[in-house]
Design a protein around this nucleic acid. Structure first.
Length: 450
RNA sequence: GGUCCCAUCGUCCAGCGGUCCAGGACACCGCCCUUUCAAGGCGGCGACACGGGUUCGAACCCCGUUGGGACCGCCA
């Protein structure tokens, strides 16, 4: 496996909701395997549930995959040699296959439905690429709650195929070589193998992925917070970081490497190295991974990622030169785990308004104010509105404090507050330097510090 | 209840019979740096679920127990 160059894997979501974390994780591992082997990654839409499937969700899922950078080689939107790529368009295929089973006596009609007769006494060996060998007796592949054999519905009364049947037919005709899906499907696999056998088809290789759990160790669901990948986008997580984090759930590239890009992941990915244990989705780790990617980004990419969040705050980054914005963000350093936080923490670079609305300098006592006024006058006397170079500003400030019996802290904090409206920020002199003497004068004057 | 799966720090991963009184990362706690907060540096806390085997030797192999999970729809 793996090196024959003909690997064909697929991600087969049903369009009954947005792309959620579990689905994204599955899609991601399929993508990794396809890219690692140089094979094909196929997107198939499983829309046999007429009630719940919508075209809108189909689009949302594709958007989610694109957001994560999971490009597919064949799919409903781009075609391919193994179509159709929507189950609703392969009705004749299911029909024919089910007729074949009726003719061979392996299935029977029940009204409009077609039911597969589950054989007894057959051994089913599932050789999973991740879980290893799993043995199941055929009569246990599909049971009622009381333990009696339950035949498998192939075609529903409405004429649509059931999941277990459609998957087999699709994977067969689409030449899927390896089925990579969530571990919750492991119990379905023996049923599917039975159908492959009855049809005389060769089953693909199977690889089941460990589940992703919430903090309570239960299968991830809406009550664990964000489920759609787009909610992570809205929270300020970078697609590269979500990709990285998801890849880490059940796998590592090895060598203590934890922060990586898609290329490295694809290059070093191995199905055989995937963990069996379900993984807990840990926000703290996601935050960390996101922050690492944020720090590693190019200034331009970072600016592009943060701008939407400033706009959301009613700010207009476009009124500044791009260089200024990029420098401001670079100055922010490791502050902020997400682009949303970064935008919020750095709002004062974009506009003075948010500063005014959150800071009023009321804690500054008259004597303190007098010291500040003297200091700022001195600094403007010395530097004017230009040449605000951080190191020189700081040197001057330290020197002035020493000569005037003041502490650096007692001028730095009010200055920070006047400039940013926050008690937390990058170094004041670097901030002041970037904003420029003129803008600083406006802000300092507003608080009568000068 | 039945079937199947899983089992290393709180969490994510290393480990695939000896080099492990178990390694890295996140989180947490100290210290350093320092005009604030991050970042960064240094250090600390912290796990092989339990019991039997097999073996000269087990976190690694086998069995059992316990714990956890998934599935048991004419949903996918």
């Amino acid at each position: 496996m793996g090196t024959d160059g003909n690997v064909r894997v697929r991600f087969a979501p049903s369009p009954t909701g947005a792309l959620h974390i579990g689905g994204a994780h599955t899609a991601l591992f399929n993508w990794l395997w396809a890219r690692h082997t140089g094979g094909s990654f196929i997107l198939r839409i499983e829309d046999t549930d007429r009630e719940r499937s919508t075209a809108e969700y189909e689009r949302t899922i594709m958007d989610g995959m694109r957001w994560l950078g999971l490009d597919w080689d064949e799919g409903p939107d781009k075609g391919g040699n193994h179509g159709p790529y929507r189950q609703s368009e392969r009705m004749d295929g299911y029909r024919n296959a089910s007729e074949l089973l009726i003719e061979s006596g392996r299935a029977y009609r029940d009204g409009e439905a077609i039911i597969f007769r589950v054989p007894e006494g057959e051994k089913i060996l599932l050789d999973d690429a991740i879980y290893g060998e799993i043995n199941v007796a055929s009569e246990k592949a599909s049971m009622n709650q009381d333990g009696s054999i339950k035949d498998i519905v192939l075609i529903k009364s409405d004429g649509m195929p059931t999941y277990n049947f459609a998957v087999v037919v699709d994977d067969h005709f689409m030449d899927i070589t390896c089925v990579i899906r969530g571990e919750d499907h492991i119990a379905n696999t023996p049923k599917q193998i039975l159908i492959y056998r009855a049809l005389g088809w060769e089953p693909p290789q199977f690889a089941h992925l460990p589940m992703i759990l919430g903090g309570d160790k239960k299968k991830l669901s809406k009550r664990h917070g964000a489920t759609s990948v787009f909610e992570y986008n809205d929270m300020g997580y970078l697609p590269d970081a979500v990709f990285n984090f998801l890849a880490l759930l059940g796998w590592t590239p090895g060598g203590d490497v934890e922060i990586f890009d898609r290329e490295l992941a694809a290059r070093s990915f191995e199905l055989s190295k995937v963990t069996k244990k379900p993984a807990v989705f840990d926000m703290d780790k996601l935050n960390y991974v996101n922050q690492e990617h944020l720090k590693a980004m190019s200034p331009e990419a970072r600016r592009n990622a943060v701008e939407p969040f400033w706009r959301e705050l009613g700010l207009h980054p476009e009124k500044h030169p791009e260089k200024f914005i990029e420098d401001a963000l670079t100055l922010m350093g490791g502050r902020g785990k997400t682009t949303r936080e970064l935008a919020e923490y750095s709002d004062y670079f974009i506009d003075f308004e948010p500063v005014k609305s959150r800071y009023d300098a009321s804690e500054i006592t008259p004597p303190h104010r007098e010291v500040l006024r003297k200091f700022f006058c001195a600094i403007y006397d010395r530097f004017g509105d230009r040449d605000w170079e951080p190191a020189r500003l700081e040197e001057f400030a330290r020197d002035w404090c020493e000569k005037n019996n003041a502490s650096l802290k007692e001028i730095a904090m009010p200055m920070r507050l006047a400039l940013s409206g926050r008690k937390v920020s990058p170094g004041v002199f670097e901030m002041a330097s970037l904003m420029g003497g003129e803008e600083c004068k406006i802000r300092l004057s507003n608080y009568q510090f000068i």
